[in-house]
Amino acid sequence: MKRKLLYAIGKRLLISFAILFVFISFLFFLIRISPGDPSQKLISPKLSPALHESVKESFALNDPILEQFYNFTKNMLTGQFGYSYDYKMPVTKVILEFLPFTLILGSLSFVIQLALSFWLAYLSLKNRGKFLDRFLSKFSLVMYVTPIFVLGVFLVFIFSVKLDLLPTSGISSVDSYRYSFWQNLGDYILHLILPLITLSAAGTALFYRYLRDYFEDVRSKSFILNLRSMGVSENVIIWKHIIPNSISPLVSIAGIELGTLLGGALITEVLFSLPGMGRLTINAIFARDYPLIIGCSFIAGVLMIFSNLLADLSRSIINPRYSKEFLN
């Protein structure tokens, strides 16, 4: 069984990485055929054409595209992404500077989304049909459809500009490096409140709606009615029967959400000046920093593959029915 599981995981990873490679290669060609020239960064009378040529030469952009692709493949297989044009550092090093923050923000937001949506759905379930339930179900819809930047702008407007409670952007105060550990922690928390709300609102609403629907679905199943007629207490029904039966479909959606979050929360990062993968990627795209674009996409892809795998694994642990499906 264990060997079989490992084999299944290995096979799945292999296929996923093969597809990721095809996907990244597709990106490689997409970038190369697109207009724009990374060596022509700025138009200034002071830059001599000689410099332009020599920079282009050193980026190896004058080579035939197939040769570039050959080198690209070779580097990808050996795990080398080359030097970022803009940061003038190895791509892996640049990414390592930005990735931790994204991982922290993403997983924090993920935990918040899950916990909060679960709590709210539970409240809805307990107060079914009452005001709270109806309010939550309407409000969650509004939250889900509000564009993320509108929400962020309003939050900043209210909490930073009007009430002056929270900082507007960044992850730390400018002289945080002189702080003690606890001050720093507090500083981070203060800075992350608004971004976390902004980033988590839509996801929470979505999870909430799914959970509520699943709860509702399981609730109306005949075995619950049987239990209830047998006089089992409502709490036992909720905790022992409704919730465990509703969780597993959520897991795969949650896996996708986690993958997306870890890839970088683009708009939140731009809005709150956070140093995450989203902004790194977007800047790389605009600056045509080819190696960095490829590196960022690769990392996002890898994170996504693993979070999907994680989701499926946990799903099969929760519900053995899926493990069979997974093994095949």
């Binding site: 409670l165 105060s173 002289d175 002189r178 702080y179 001050q183 507090g186 928390i189 203060l190 409140i193």
Partner: peptide
């Protein structure tokens, strides 16, 4: 939060 707020404010 307010404690954090006040202590960061002073030193900044």
């Amino acid at each position: 939060l307010f404690i954090f707020n006040s202590c960061t404010d002073k030193s900044s």
